[in-house]
Simulated scan of single mutants.
Amino acid sequence: MSERLDFNQANPAALKPMRGLEQYIAQSSIEKSLAELVRLRASQINGCAFCVDMHTADARKGGEDERRLATVCVWQETHLFTDRERAALAWTEALTRIATQPVTDKLYDELSTHFSEAERVDLTLLIGSINTWNRFAIAFRKPLP
């Protein structure tokens, strides 16, 4: 597939707020290793090859274990993720699939067990951000490097 549009070049001013959002997320209460797992899982669900590749590489650079990277797509079936990570991944899946999957009270209560109110906001912002980046990359066919 060929790139439809280089969105970074086509309208850098439009992406400036997204970059600001990413700067906030980078210093937010969500640990970097968890942020990469969340970005990777949302990108897998959305089918964004560019973002799956990028966030797998970023997680590796951050020291993430290969087994965990290989099994994040089936995190519910493994013992490799902490309860906090599992709650975040479940939240990621629900928000990424929000059109077809309800965000239940049970899910929210589990999230609340592992994340403070501020962390819940930061995590939700992170998930919204990666879903937006996925849409840009998929819509305009961002090529792998």
Rank of each mutant, 00 (worst) to 15 (best):
L5T: 01
L5R: 09
D6V: 04
D6R: 00
D6G: 06
F7E: 06
F7K: 08
F7S: 04
N8Q: 14
N8G: 12
Q9P: 02
A10G: 04
N11W: 04
N11I: 13
N11L: 12
N11P: 06
P12M: 04
P12F: 03
P12H: 03
P12C: 04
A13G: 11
A13K: 12
A13L: 15
A13H: 07
A13D: 10
A14I: 12
A14C: 10
A14T: 13
L15Y: 00
K16M: 06
K16H: 12
P17M: 04
P17I: 02
M18K: 09
M18N: 11
M18E: 09
M18H: 12
M18C: 06
M18F: 14
M18P: 05
M18I: 14
R19W: 12
R19I: 09
G20T: 02
G20Y: 05
G20Q: 11
G20F: 03
L21R: 09
L21M: 15
E22Y: 11
E22T: 09
Q23S: 15
Q23V: 11
Y24L: 14
I25C: 07
I25K: 00
I25N: 11
Q27D: 12
S28M: 15
S28I: 10
S29I: 02
I30M: 09
I30C: 01
I30Q: 00
I30G: 05
I30S: 05
I30N: 03
E31C: 04
E31R: 10
E31F: 07
K32S: 13
S33H: 10
S33C: 02
S33W: 09
L34C: 01
A35Q: 12
E36P: 02
L37E: 08
L37S: 07
L37W: 06
V38N: 04
V38T: 07
R39P: 01
R39A: 07
L40R: 08
R41S: 08
A42Y: 01
A42P: 06
A42E: 05
A42G: 08
A42Q: 02
